[in-house]
């Protein structure tokens, strides 16, 4: 493979990394928000959110991408491929991560909440001072693995024309009439990225465990 071809794919890698970074920064807080809303058990809202999560969990990501990309214009929003891709990735990861946050909230020790109330902490302070500092550490492992899952999802946005790694590899293949080498290079890049993240996750988990002496409450 030629140098310019490799450059094309590496440029794609930058786009993939940027997409993943932006989407994760949006989706993890959004997931937490969804979980908190469900935690409140507001009748209608809880039901709608539960339905949203089941639909996203059942829907293939590529189907969600196409849906978002084709639907929004008919709702009057002219969406470019990149924002559409970010929206789809964010919805997907928010739904999955909200389940992680939700189970963390559900299993949070009740006596700690009672203690917080007994000492006069407001609901807001209870969350920010007591609950959140514990659950993010305890669930860092599953949350980081959402990052690798998100990264594994990104190739699907190639279908709506975002030129990330996969689309770039496809282009190189179409130009050279040899699709296999660029896809092999692309696979190598993904594997390196994801394997690094998985390693990183293990290191971070170990550090958290060492510093705080526990992993899950």
């Amino acid at each position: 493979m030629t140098w310019p071809a490799l450059r094309t794919i590496l440029d794609g890698a930058v786009v993939t990394a940027a997409l993943a970074a932006v989407s994760i920064l949006l989706s993890l807080p959004l997931g937490l928000l969804l979980a908190l809303l469900r935690w409140r058990r507001i009748p209608m809202v809880a039901g709608v959110l539960a339905a949203f999560v089941s639909v996203v969990r059942a829907t293939p990501f590529v189907t969600l991408v196409l849906f978002v990309f084709f639907i929004l214009p008919s709702a009057g929003l002219e969406l470019e491929p990149v924002p559409a891709a970010i929206l789809a990735l964010t919805l997907n990861t928010a739904a999955f991560s909200s389940e992680i946050w939700r189970s963390a909230l559900q299993t949070f020790p009740r006596d700690q909440l009672e203690a917080a109330t007994a000492f006069g902490l407001s609901e807001r302070a209870t969350f920010t001072r007591i609950v959140f500092p514990q659950i993010w550490r305890a669930n860092l492992g599953p949350l980081v693995s959402e990052v690798t899952i998100l990264l594994k999802c990104t190739p699907a946005v190639a279908v709506i024309g975002v030129v990330e790694i996969t689309r770039a590899a496809g282009r190189v293949g179409a130009e050279t009439y040899e699709p296999l080498p660029p896809f092999l290079v692309a696979t190598l890049i993904y594997t390196a990225l994801i394997a690094t993240l998985v390693r990183g996750q293990r290191v971070v988990e170990r550090r958290i465990a060492r510093r705080f002496g526990w992993v899950r409450p």
């Binding site: 594994k152 990104t154 699907a156 699709p179 896809f183 092999l184 993904y190 994801i194 998985v198």
Partner: peptide, 10 residues
């Protein structure tokens, strides 16, 4: 560690 789409392409 491989995204499924890439495995399918390869």
């Amino acid at each position: 560690c491989v995204p499924f789409l890439l495995l399918a392409y390869v």
